[in-house]
């Protein structure tokens, strides 16, 4: 794996972290909580090199 590809995995991890952070902060709106989880799905699967 080359450096740029590794940087992309780090980028994905960073965005996933931001989503989780927002998800934890969000306590009111169930709709928004669902949305954070939905956007997390592809990021997490990419991080685990599933898809």
């Amino acid at each position: 794996m080359n450096i740029i590809m590794i940087l992309y995995y780090i980028l994905c991890a960073y965005i996933a972290f931001l989503l989780v952070w927002n998800f934890i902060k969000e306590k009111e709106n169930k709709d928004h909580m669902l949305h954070y989880l939905l956007v997390l799905v592809p990021l997490v699967l990419r991080l685990f090199r599933i898809k």
Binding site: K30, M33, L34, L37, L38, V41, V44, L45
Partner: peptide, 9 residues
């Protein structure tokens, strides 16, 4: 909710 999405994922 998180559990269901996690499971499906």
């Amino acid at each position: 909710m998180a559990a269901i999405i996690g499971l499906l994922t």
